[in-house]
Amino acid sequence: MESLRGSVTGSITSKLSGFTILLLFLLSCSTFTSTEAYDALDPNGNITIKWDIMTWNPDGYVAVVTIFNFQQYRHIQAPGWTLGWTWAKKEVIWSMMGGQTTEQGDCSKYKGNIPHCCKKDPTVVDLLPGTPYNQQIENCCKGGVISSWAQDPTTALSSFQLSVGAAGTTNKTVREYQKISHLNPRGLDTLVDLQKLVNN
């Protein structure tokens, strides 16, 4: 009887130990953070996105969006950056300079003056070098390529301008977008620092 009790207890203990080890292994796998964007030589490097509202329109505003690459050694290389977000309300992009959206979305409710983009979650890309001057703004049109801050701070940024409609017309009525993401050339999400600066 003692030997039976000992073998049952030993069997339960070994199964429990195996289960505990498996559980600890699974928990440790789920708590590791990705080091995809981490650079040991530049642990504080980041990409900052600044959203400046420059002027107010009857149904929205004109903003300049600037992407700063504050990483010391990592460039954003071809095919370049893409930037996406989700609007808080039913905003539309009436026009753009220095960038373009990848899809227009469903603008069928608009007659006559059709917006540039009606998507709830637009994705913007940089224009290519050689874009006509009347479609450019300062620091645009490099095909999405941005130098690292250490290499050349004057080319470590990229900008585009957009005219947003159906958005509110004051600091109090404009609602901040819900989610913003920067996609690197391989399509992997990278965390970004976000500043929203509103000029009065």
Rank of each mutant, 00 (worst) to 15 (best):
S3M: 02
R5S: 07
G10C: 03
S11G: 14
I12M: 08
T13H: 04
T13I: 13
T13Q: 05
G18N: 14
F19D: 06
L23H: 09
L26V: 14
S28D: 10
S30D: 12
T31Q: 09
D42Y: 04
N44H: 13
T48K: 13
W51E: 14
W51K: 06
D52N: 12
Y61A: 05
V64Q: 13
V64N: 13
V65F: 03
N69P: 15
F70K: 08
R74G: 01
H75E: 10
W81I: 11
W85L: 05
W87G: 06
W87V: 01
A88P: 07
V92T: 06
W94H: 06
W94A: 06
M96W: 03
M97V: 04
G98V: 07
G98S: 08
E103I: 00
C107K: 05
Y110N: 01
K111Q: 15
K111T: 15
N113K: 11
N113F: 06
C117S: 15
K119D: 11
T123I: 12
T123S: 03
D126I: 02
P129E: 02
T131G: 09
T131H: 09
N139Q: 07
K142L: 08
S148F: 06
W149G: 02
Q151N: 09
T155A: 07
A156K: 06
A156L: 05
S158T: 08
S158G: 12
A166E: 13
T169A: 01
T169S: 07
T169M: 02
T173V: 03
T173N: 09
V174A: 08
V174I: 15
Y177R: 00
I180F: 01
R186A: 05
L194C: 05
L194V: 12
Q195R: 02
K196V: 08
L197C: 06
V198R: 00
N199R: 09
N199H: 08
N200L: 06
